[in-house]
Design a protein around this nucleic acid. Sequence first.
DNA 1: TTGAAAGCGCTACCAC
DNA 2: GTGGTAGCGCTTTCAA
Lengths: 354, 354
Amino acid sequence: MKVTIKMIAEEAGVSMTTVTNVLKNRTDRVSKEKIELINDIIKKYNYTPNMNARSLANSSSNLIGLLYHSVGGRIDFSDPFVSELLAGIEEKTKDNGYFVLVYNIETVDDVIKVQKNWKFEGFIIVGLSENSFEEIHKNIPSDTPIVFVDTHLTADMEKEFINLPNRYIISSEDRQAGHEATKFLISQGHRKIGFLGFTFNENEPGVINERFYGFKKALQESSISFDYRFFFTDKEFEKITDVLEEITALVVSSDYLAINLIHYLRMRGLYDKKKLSIIGFDDVSYAKFLDPPLTTIRLNQKNKGIIAFNLLNKAIHGESVDKITNLSGDLIVRESVTNVASKIGKQARRKNEK
Amino acid sequence: MKVTIKMIAEEAGVSMTTVTNVLKNRTDRVSKEKIELINDIIKKYNYTPNMNARSLANSSSNLIGLLYHSVGGRIDFSDPFVSELLAGIEEKTKDNGYFVLVYNIETVDDVIKVQKNWKFEGFIIVGLSENSFEEIHKNIPSDTPIVFVDTHLTADMEKEFINLPNRYIISSEDRQAGHEATKFLISQGHRKIGFLGFTFNENEPGVINERFYGFKKALQESSISFDYRFFFTDKEFEKITDVLEEITALVVSSDYLAINLIHYLRMRGLYDKKKLSIIGFDDVSYAKFLDPPLTTIRLNQKNKGIIAFNLLNKAIHGESVDKITNLSGDLIVRESVTNVASKIGKQARRKNEK
DNA sequence: TTGAAAGCGCTACCAC
DNA sequence: GTGGTAGCGCTTTCAA
């Protein structure tokens, strides 16, 4: 049998209001004796309020929407990159008394749907492009805070963004990460370097776009010209096999993609880590267990999830929060990159590994 | 501005009841013209009903609770074993118009909490021991269906379970899996075989317990006696190093644990796949990318998630459903197990790999 | 066919 | 301090 405020009020011989006041800890409005009495009854029946009624009555709900954006099913929970973020969020969220509704959004309609169906305290939305960002931002009332994870904005848009109330961004320094990854390859003597990433829109900022930008910048700084023949998307593994003799290294936009490529090549007897160095991004939990252990830029997704929640939590409580947070990546040197410049440095390659 | 039924009714010049009837497709109670008119308005405002109000008024909610049981934080979303299940569930769930609330439960109180806070259509609960199973089962009304994933019951309990309305179980044939894994090691000439698993209660059935049972059975069938010195928990890696010279193979209760062990040994210079064969369970997505590629029993978590949802969905709609579903595992032969019996068979070891 | 009204459980406002 | 009550948006029962 469901226990309600009314029942508690009856048993205690008080009004519903008084019970509510006790529930809400408005101690100045209820006498000490009643507080105790009511609390005892609450405990006795193990009463917990009905969230639907509560959400209906006011606007609070303790519900947080974790929305994953996926175009064409690209985002998959089995990708550790995704689940590690979730791990971070889930952990904090529960400790703070929230509930998380996980929803995969493909179109704006999906957002409108969750949005109207439930009352949310706030949203954490992952992986939105700038275009989708605008649409979605407009469709969620400005009194509901949103933390956008891994959304990148053009400079113009960013200026606007700064003034948007209740909208926050947390992402990695993807440009810097791409730059660092590439610089590392160059430092190891590589000159013919390719780039492999999930398909992205070159005219719109985004995680991969940013990494690609950092990649090109690093090449440029070393006066290396980039040959677009060495640019590949995740659908073009076979194109890579064609130029295997021409490139010595590859910047791959995620560990996940990197190991898939290695596997693809290996199955065809084409993988030789001495001849093709590979650096990834993320440092997923098993990157160090791979063959070869992956050299990568650690982005620490779990930590990102924790911070995303903290931002949201503060925003919900009306505390002031940084509009844009950028987490820097760390180069993790393992064994998928070979030094082709000299024989020295083989030791150094392990420095980051414990 | 939120659109409500009332507003729609006003604009259409009808009563709320009529709008509801259209919403519910009760076409026999409304005239054709009004149906069209109302539908137009609904479309125009992109109306979607408020779930909180709806849930409050009736008992439906379109909400499914995905509850992960973790004692001492053992279950972690970054463990692919967990996230792959979620991937399967999320996929189906959305297609069928449900929303998923993900919650990590540690105690029965946690269950009571979610349970009273929200109205759920049903639950998918993962990783419950028999004891917790009973407690939780009792605390959720019997008209709410629950699918228990990976819960194992003793024979007595199982008899009772069969008659419990709205309770279902889906799990893997863990005993058979343990048996198969061990038999494979034996077929490869191993005789000194150890077992490594997360700590478990020997008196209570459970995933690892079952695998261990199958393990012992296989040994027995080959008249190999089991030495408890070769039994290890996840906290006892160093105990393994002590007997490294004595055992030639290890059955490890999950891929996740297996790679952690390999890494642990490798870091100490103690890993030699020729001298220590390892077989895991799950076949997590990256098992084939590891060094060495892991020989394992594939359990297909994603598929399990899909099936779990299907069971629940049918149960919610009152269709009859199998009380207990068992998914069999498949031996996937890769390279972490060495044939110590003969020189032949090295070819065969690759047969399962594409 | 259509509509009025009660009630789901809770909160906030206002009165005593 | 305490209590009454309207109302959140929706569904269902009963009446017209």
